[in-house]
């Protein structure tokens, strides 16, 4: 009910946005005036964005926002997190309710163009998979013909699964829910044979099911799901800030700069590191920030590798291998243009 209200409200807000004759105020100025960054995140997805028992938000998507806040305010705590369902997220960004959407969102062409959004990078390379009960004894998704599939609405998942079954000439019965908890509860109650989502989400949600060992994620990956933060179109400066803060985190990993050794490294002689941390050149100016923007971001959340290990990697309950998300130097896909 609340989310139905919310959708309606968002539509009204959009009209109101329309009525306010849209003075194109720069997002950076708006954020500075507010004194905090408003960041749209998932309502609860372990490893990506979830509140811990003290009410602090943690996760990979959360850390991206903290890094941006640190680059702007020199304080990673100046973020207001707005939990959004898959259905609400785009309207929230379009209407200006949030400044940046960092909510395991797949970068697609229509979203990047006709939806008025602009993606700034890929923070996690993902792909869609299937989770089934171990007792079914399945080896491949190709054996799923005739199955009932639980899926969350408002996602690329919903379309991929339709494509996959059509392509392989199999039929299935969709059961579509709005929120993750109901989707999982229905899967758990046996309403569906399969729960499908991005693989990262499958690993995260498996931990919340009674006995994780009773469920397996099938090896098939049926789609490309590059997940990343998005901003509104039409504010290039703001897009650059979010884009380059993330690039700084990736570059930091490549250059071996961590949250711990950053002060030491800043004193070193490597010009690449000096530029990244603002000891040389005036790269902050180009995006409207202070010279130490990169230093502040890395100091607050660590480099990309640290973020990954802490939230979803070996240091977390999810224990996801780096895989495609390793640096390009290690055979992965993470690659950032240089600060120069």
């Amino acid at each position: 009910m609340t989310s139905r209200l919310r959708t309606g409200l968002l539509a009204v807000t959009m009209l109101a946005v329309g009525a306010s004759a849209a003075s194109a105020q720069a997002t950076l100025q708006k954020v500075r005036d507010k004194g905090e960054l408003t960041c749209g995140v998932n309502t609860g997805l372990a490893g990506f964005s979830a509140p811990d028992d003290k009410g602090n938000w943690t996760g990979l998507d959360v850390d991206v926002c903290r890094a941006v806040a640190a680059a702007i305010f020199k304080d990673p705590a100046k973020v207001k997190f707005v939990p959004l369902t898959a259905k609400e997220r785009f309207t929230a960004l379009q209407s200006g309710e949030i400044d940046v959407l960092s909510r395991n969102t797949t970068w697609t062409m229509s979203r990047d163009t006709s939806a008025g959004m602009s993606f700034t990078g890929v923070t996690y390379y993902d792909g869609q998979g299937f989770m089934v009960k171990k007792s079914l004894g399945l080896k491949s998704a190709k054996e799923l013909s005739g199955a009932s599939v639980c899926v969350q609405t408002g996602t690329t998942t919903e379309l991929n699964v339709a494509d996959y079954f059509r392509k392989n000439k199999m039929d299935y019965k969709p059961v579509v829910f709005e929120k993750l908890p109901e989707t999982l509860a229905a899967y758990n109650a046996g309403r569906c044979d399969v729960y499908t989502s991005d693989a990262s989400q499958l690993y995260a949600t498996r931990l919340t099911l009674g006995d994780p060992a009773e469920h397996v994620v099938l090896p098939d990956v049926i789609s490309k799901e590059p997940l990343g933060p998005a901003v509104r179109q039409g504010d290039a400066q703001w897009g650059n800030i979010v884009r380059w803060v993330f690039f700084a985190l990736v570059n930091a990993e490549e250059l071996g700069v961590t949250a711990k050794n950053i002060d030491e490294m800043a004193q070193g002689q490597n010009p690449e590191i000096k530029r990244l941390l603002g000891k040389e050149g005036e790269f902050g100016k180009g995006i409207g920030l202070d010279v130490d923007w990169g230093y502040q971001a890395i100091k607050s959340v660590g480099n990309y590798g640290e973020m990954f290990e802490r939230n979803v990697g070996e240091g977390s309950r999810l224990k996801i291998a780096r895989g495609q998300n390793a640096l390009w130097t290690d055979g992965g896909l993470q690659y950032a243009p240089p600060v120069r």
Binding site: M14, L15, G18, A19, A22, G116
Partner: peptide, 17 residues
């Protein structure tokens, strides 16, 4: 008319279909 007009203008400006 003003609301409709503004909404259309802003949607176009934000390049929302």
């Amino acid at each position: 008319a003003e609301i409709v007009n503004n909404a259309i203008t802003n949607l176009k400006k934000q390049s929302i279909a």
